[in-house]
Write a protein that binds this DNA or RNA. Structure first.
Length: 646
RNA sequence: GCCGAUGUAGCUCAGCGGUAGAGCACUUCCUUGGUAAGGAAGAGGUCACGGGUUCAAUUCCCGUCAUUGGCUCCA
């Protein structure tokens, strides 16, 4: 008999060789039906894998990441089987599960797949799935495995196997298909009930552009047809919310070939929205003790040589501009921090002055690869809501916590409720990647972890993701469609103070080196506005909306009354306009709804007589009539509900 | 940067080896209408750009540029 420890801590006794599936069956019939994958101690296994020793066991279903992973990874096998069916000479490489589905990279030789082939692939895929073929893991000797793929001329698999040790090489069989595989599969193919081939793309072998290019087939699969339908609806929804589409419809921003790719032009309404966001943050930052600074758009090359950015990112910057006479080289500013370091250095600092917090909405330019540009989320010129805090070692935790407070405030005011903190620490096995002493790293890492814990942040820790100069905390936000975005970031930096020889006079009358904290709650204004637009589908929070109301006159007889009302509302700090077109009221309402203006005020004979407005709320219809004063009150109270003082 | 797809009116898109199409938007006129599209007329395009094939190219081929889905990168 062996003891199996379950996640709740309970220990059950089973006979040796029991499988995860049998354990699930012994717990409940429902669990047995739904279990897809399992983890024995630290190893992901098939639920049919016999367990030989005392172990801890965790069972995964579709609702767990690991369950989905097994599901999608198994689907990748079926996809490979299907591709092999249609393209017998195909060379298989790798086929992992990803966040939303799976892919398989194949070398098709002279063959081509196009999106016209998707349907037939899906059809055959499901035929294979319905065979309910069991996934069976078997061990193969290195020699046999190499021989098999060498015979097929599959240099990719040969390369993979060469990097594995004999004795740990496994293949997974199902039906008449076999593939090199570490494991973590469903019990059989029959659980996959629905599949969609989503796209096709080129991908380099091992992600290296000098290696051969493979064809990557992306797909997603589900245990129920209904889930696929829901997924497709979600994709449609994402398309509807695409900030590039809404940005065009609501006239927020545009691009011009003449101006240059990746260089956004903010239209009046977008600029209105953005400056409102900036004002909002500036106000909170002043309260939090930040000092605004302003720095130029270009900087001497030596500045970035000093900061190390030139060495590391010179290739990714716009190339230096030379002064005509002296031949001095200047770079378009790719970062604000070097400038802020120089501001710090502009006078001697005492330990009593610290922390010093410099904030700037600094526009930076980076030469992003052309293929990577995307709407406002990836551009070549963008504005960071940047700030750099220069702190003493003993202040790190406190300052970090304050920054977390600020970020939380920003998110709460904008309707982002679902987020977690990702703490990126160094990879201790790879010390060469990082600069700074072990002691400092230790301190900074524990400071971040402690600060996050004290601020009740939901956190995940990833090792090896830290920047070379220090650990960081990124805010990962889920939007209304549950998509994950990285927004705010807080980073600890030992590197720049060193390079710029920043100092402060300590209480001991000795010079000390401050530590820098970089932070940006929005990240970049461009990216943030894009994400916010998709999150709220262009229906911006009332306090941010470029126009808060539109006055719709029943006919032009009431335009004078409309003007009077507009003036009064504007005097009360509200933003709006009159739709004075010679259109019927139904038409005006429709157009205003589509423009996502939060409130519509209808003015006709009745309203003119009683000096009221008939209020309609975007998406909610008629709210009845109110006096203009009541309407001001309504808007203000809605805003106050959402956004409190920092 | 690399691989694939796309590029037709301000927008969304149809079309095609033989004089360029629709809906919306726009302009003008009519309509002054009470809670999601009133009516009519008009204007608007070197079919991304440059080459080639052809009697003839927006259409077929090549190149460039841009957009886009990925890959790589992301201070």
């Amino acid at each position: 008999m062996i003891n199996i420890t379950l996640p709740d801590g309970s220990v059950r006794e089973y006979k040796k060789g029991v499988t995860a599936f049998e354990v699930a069956s012994s717990i409940s019939e429902g669990l047995a039906r739904n279990v897809l994958s399992a983890r024995v101690n630290d190893r992901i296994v098939e639920i049919s894998t016999p367990i030989q020793t005392d172990s801890s066991l965790r069972l995964f279903t579709w609702d767990d990441e690991e369950g989905k992973k097994a599901f999608w990874h198994s689907s990748a096998h079926i996809l490979a089987q299907t591709l092999e069916f249609f393209y017998p000479s195909v060379k298989l490489t790798i086929g992992p599960a990803i966040e939303n589905g799976f892919y398989y990279d194949v070398d098709l030789g002279d063959e081509h797949i196009s999106d016209k082939d998707f349907q037939k692939i899906e059809k055959k895929f499901l035929e294979f799935a319905r065979e309910k073929a069991e996934f069976k893991l078997k061990e193969v000797s290195k020699a046999d495995a190499l021989a098999m793929y060498a015979k097929q001329g599959n240099q990719f698999k040969v390369e993979l196997i060469e990097n594995l040790n004999d004795g740990e090489i496994t293949f997974c069989d199902h039906s008449n298909f076999t593939d090199l595989c570490r494991g973590g599969h469903l019990p059989n193919t029959g659980l996959v009930k629905a599949v969609k081939i989503t796209s096709i793309a080129g991908a380099y072998w091992r992600g290296d552009e000098n290696k051969p290019q493979l064809t990557r087939v992306y797909g997603i699969s589900f245990p129920k047809a209904k889930l696929l339908e829901e997924y497709l609806v979600m994709l449609e929804e994402a398309k509807r919310r695409d900030h590039r589409k809404i940005g065009k419809e609501l006239e927020l921003f545009t691009f011009s070939e003449k101006v240059g790719m990746g260089l956004p032009l903010w239209l009046p309404k977008g600029a209105e929205l953005r400056s409102r966001l900036e004002e909002f943050l500036k106000k909170a930052q002043i309260k939090a003790g930040y000092q605004p600074v302003i720095t130029p758009h270009i900087g001497h090359k030596d500045l970035y040589v000093c900061s190390g950015h030139y060495d590391k990112y010179g290739e990714d910057s716009f190339q230096p501009i030379k002064t005509p006479k002296e031949g001095e080289e200047f770079l378009l500013k790719p970062m604000n921090c070097p400038h802020h370091c120089e501001i710090y250095k502009s006078k001697p600092r005492s330990y009593k002055d610290l922390p010093v917090r410099f904030a700037e909405f600094g526009t930076v330019y980076r030469y992003e690869q052309s293929g990577e540009l995307h709407g406002l989320t990836r551009v070549r010129g963008f504005t960071q809501d940047d700030a750099h805090l220069f702190v003493r070692p003993d202040q790190i935790i406190e300052e970090f916590k304050k920054v977390i407070d600020l970020v939380k405030y920003v998110f709460a005011s904008l309707g982002f409720e679902d987020y977690e903190a990702q703490i990126s620490l160094r990879d201790k096995n790879n010390p060469d990647k990082y600069i700074g002493s072990d002691e400092n790293w230790e301190k900074a890492e524990s400071a971040i972890i402690k600060a996050a814990a004290e601020k009740d942040l939901k956190t995940t820790v990833v090792y090896g993701e830290a920047a070379f100069y220090g650990p960081k905390l990124d805010f990962m936000v889920r939007d209304a469609l549950k998509r994950k975005w990285q927004l705010g970031t807080i980073q600890v930096d030992y590197n720049l103070p060193e390079r710029f020889e920043l100092e402060y006079m300590g209480s001991d009358n000795q010079k000390h080196r401050p530590i820098m904290i970089h932070r940006a709650p929005f990240g970049s204004m461009e990216r943030f506005v894009a994400i916010l637009t998709e999150h709220c589908e262009g229906k911006f929070p009332l306090w941010l909306a470029p126009e808060q109301f539109a006055i719709l006159s029943i006919s032009d007889k009431y335009l004078a009354q409309a003007e009077k009302t507009l003036l009064l509302l504007r005097e009360n700090g509200l933003r709006g306009y009159i739709d004075d077109r010679a259109e019927k009221i139904g038409r005006k309402i429709r157009d205003t709804e589509l423009q996502k203006i939060p409130f519509m005020l209808i003015i006709g004979e009745k309203e003119e007589e009683s000096n009221t407005v008939s209020v309609r709320k975007q998406g909610h219809g008629d709210l009845g009539s109110k006096t203009p004063e009541e309407f001001v009150e309504l808007i203000n109270s809605e805003i106050n509900e959402m956004i409190s003082a920092f």
